[in-house]
Nucleic acid binder design. Structure first.
Lengths: 201, 201
DNA sequence: AACCTAAGTCAATGCGTGTTGACATAATCA
DNA sequence: TGATTATGTCAACACGCATTGACTTAGGTT
């Protein structure tokens, strides 16, 4: 046990002084906590501890909880990724991802859980309108392209969010035939949204 | 100011003593608050005040906040409604509802917002697994029927939730061509899920 | 009428949490 | 080296909130 305590005794090495690094550490920890817990349940002390930092530094570097949240939210949406998606395989790939457990794609999962939590908390929802428009809906709209891209982007985004929630509450991966059917149906939906027109002209 | 205080002086009429009625009043107020605010942001004092009741009565009748929440959640899902949906018109109707503002369908909106909030709060999510299965997924599964009803029910439920979130953050009704396209696409998705097979056999 | 029990009220306690300012110390520069 | 500043630490404070128990009173019972 003495080894364990020795390992846990990180404070023996009292943190190099490096403003940028600590700021980044806080931001990074914050992203995870906010994504997992949502604004209201996330606790500054825990975030700080996770970053190996004193709580007071949150104030120094960000001003407060809300400001930290906004910063973390923006940092979580550097709005890349989507451009790189391959149109030929996207629908299938995303459906597979959504059929699996939330734990396999931690990175992307976190980013969108963050968005979801932010959107569904009454405290933070007001902060989101612009950001959602700019960094979520708009990239999708551009990526989809074609006629009525805005409406299709809405449906696309909504579906995505929905499947994310479903996977969240499901918690575990789907298996066997259910999994195959799920993937087929979901990828059919996304594929349908990528085609410019399957409704009346 | 004396007028205002006079107006505010509702306590002049000190609440008839009726256990069932007050219990119901609390539960009713709780449903609204939890749906609108989620578990964490909802405040017992406000719920009590809304019901015209002292906070302590929440303890007397329900035991505590969490118990009240569970009760309210169950009460919000009497699992009716869905059976009554008309298969011929459902997809179109639901799409229209989802295109409009959240305020037009307060009743149903509230019930599902409740579910959503509950599912996305880490505090309450654990309480939901069974309930979601029993009162949400299962009715959909039965209503859909046919082969692979379970997988289709998942996709169905997920889509529904997603569109609900989308409408929530959108806040206002869609208009014009965007609205038409949105409705077409959404109803196409639901209609597709109602058909037994459009994938490989 | 006296009494008893269920229903409702009130004030206080304790905890979690964001925020704040005073203090300590490493890093940098004159 | 000594002084100055940026960086990090610590200990409270203030606030909101759920919870709790002691007290009050209406409504029925004997």
């Amino acid at each position: 046990m003495s080894d364990a305590t020795a390992l846990a005794r990180a404070p023996a090495e009292p943190r190099k002084r490096d403003a940028e690094a600590t700021r980044a550490a806080i931001l990074d920890a914050a992203k995870g906590h906010f994504a997992r817990l949502g604004y209201d349940c996330a606790v500054l002390r825990d975030i700080a501890q996770d970053a190996g930092v004193d709580v007071a530094l949150v104030k120094r570097y960000f001003g407060g909880k809300e400001a930290l949240f906004v910063e973390a939210l923006k940092a979580s949406f550097v709005a890349d990724g989507m451009r790189a998606w391959d149109r030929a395989t996207f629908a299938q790939e995303i459906a597979i991802t959504l059929a699996d457990s939330p734990h396999v794609d931690e990175e992307r999962t976190h980013r969108f859980q963050f968005l979801l939590r932010a959107a569904t908390s009454p405290t933070t929802a007001p902060l989101l309108n612009v950001l959602i428009q700019d960094r979520f809906l708009e990239p999708i709209r551009v990526w989809l392209g074609g006629a009525d891209a805005d409406a299709r982007a809405r449906v696309f985004a909504a579906s995505y969010i929905g499947f994310l929630v479903e996977r969240l509450v499901r918690g575990e991966a789907l298996e066997g035939r259910e999994r195959r059917v799920f993937i087929d149906r979901v990828s059919a939906i996304f594929a349908g949204l990528m085609t410019v027109s399957d409704g009346p002209p």
